[in-house]
C-alpha cells in the first residue's frame, strides 16, 4: 500500500468520488473515500492524509448557490483542522463543485489570509449548464504543484456556474502577478487564451479555469481532469488511434501524478 494518502470527501450530493479515487490510486496513492459527516464526527482524522480532494458534484443541489451550504458545513465543523492541514504544507485539490466550495470557504486564492472569499464562480454567460471538452493552456510560470510540467491539457467541463470572477480589479491583478493563475481556456490551434464560446465555455475573466494559493499547494479548477484518465475518454480517440497518437493513459492523470509525486518527495 502506498504511503501517500489521499482523502476524498463524499456524500451530500457530491458524485465524482469513484473516478477521483481511481485516478489517485493509478497515480500511486492510497485513496480513502470518507463521508463528510464521518469526518466531522472525528475531524482529527484529516491529519492522517497528505492530499485532500474536494470533488465534483452537486452538493446540496447547488441550492443557495453552488458550494455554499457545503462550505458552510465545513467552516462550522472543520475549520481549525483545515487551517492546520494547509499550514503544514499539505495538498488540496478542488474540482468543479469542490472548487466552488473552496472559493466560498476562502481557502483559495487566499491572498489576504484563509477563510476570506475573494473570487467566485458565477453562472455561465451562455445561461445554461454546459458539457463540452476544452483545451487548457498551463501557465508555466505559476507555482502550482499540480500543473508542473504540463503544457496543454484537454479535459471536459460540465457546469452551470463556472465563470471565474474576482472580487475586484485589484484582486485580479494580484492573481495574475502572483502566479496564482495556472490554467486558462485556450484556442486548441493557437493555444492563445480565449473568451470565445464554447472554447471558453463560461466567459471566465481572463479565461481563467484554475488557480492556486501562493504556495501552489492549494489548487482549484472548474474542468475535470479525473474525467480524462483513460485514453478512451477523449472525444477524438478513434482518430488518434488511426493517426498513431493515442496516449497510453488519459492526460488528466498528469495532475494526479504530480500531486502524488510531490507528496512522496516532500510530505513523507
Amino acid at each position: 500500500m502506498s504511503r501517500v494518502k489521499a482523502l476524498i470527501i463524499t456524500g451530500l450530493g457530491l458524485n465524482c468520488e469513484k473516478e477521483t479515487a481511481v485516478a489517485f490510486e493509478a497515480a500511486g496513492a492510497t485513496a480513502s473515500k470518507i463521508h463528510l459527516n464521518d469526518l466531522l464526527n472525528d475531524p482529527s482524522k484529516l491529519n492522517d492524509y497528505h492530499i485532500l480532494a474536494f470533488i465534483g458534484g452537486f452538493s446540496f443541489g447547488d441550492h443557495l448557490g453552488s458550494g455554499t451550504v457545503l462550505a458552510n458545513r465545513i467552516k462550522h465543523g472543520l475549520r481549525a483542522e483545515l487551517e492546520q492541514f494547509i499550514e503544514s504544507g499539505k495538498l488540496i485539490i478542488g474540482i468543479c463543485n469542490g472548487f466552488q466550495a473552496m472559493t466560498r470557504l476562502g481557502i483559495v486564492p487566499s491572498l489576504k489570509g484563509l477563510f476570506n472569499q475573494e473570487v467566485a464562480l458565477q453562472h455561465n454567460d451562455c445561461g445554461t449548464f454546459r458539457d463540452n471538452w476544452v483545451t487548457l493552456k498551463v501557465e508555466e510560470e505559476s507555482q502550482c504543484i499540480f500543473t508542473k510540467g504540463i503544457h496543454v491539457l484537454p479535459v471536459p467541463i460540465r457546469h452551470g456556474e463556472g465563470k471565474f470572477v474576482a472580487m475586484d480589479e485589484e484582486t485580479l491583478n494580484q492573481l495574475e502577478e502572483g502566479g496564482h493563475v495556472c490554467l486558462r481556456y485556450a484556442d486548441p490551434v493557437s493555444l492563445e487564451p480565449t473568451q470565445e464560446f464554447p472554447l471558453n465555455p463560461n466567459g471566465a475573466q481572463n479565461s481563467i479555469a484554475g488557480i492556486c494559493d501562493k504556495s501552489g499547494r492549494v489548487f482549484g479548477l472548474m474542468p475535470h481532469p479525473e474525467a480524462y484518465i483513460s485514453p478512451f475518454n477523449h472525444p477524438h480517440w478513434t482518430q488518434q488511434k488511426i493517426n498513431g497518437t493515442l496516449p497510453e493513459e488519459g492526460l488528466g492523470m498528469q495532475i494526479f501524478r504530480n500531486a502524488v509525486h510531490f507528496a512522496e518527495t516532500e510530505l513523507l
Binding site: C16, V22, T128, D131, E226, Y228, N233, W237
Partner: peptide
C-alpha cells in the same frame, strides 16, 4: 443535449456526439 452531463464517472468511450467538432 450539451446541457446534460455526458462525462461524470469517466466511463464514456463513444459519446453521444462525435466527429471533429463533436
Amino acid at each position: 443535449s450539451r446541457q446534460y452531463d455526458h462525462e461524470v464517472k469517466a466511463l464514456s468511450v463513444i459519446k453521444p456526439f462525435i466527429g471533429v467538432e463533436a
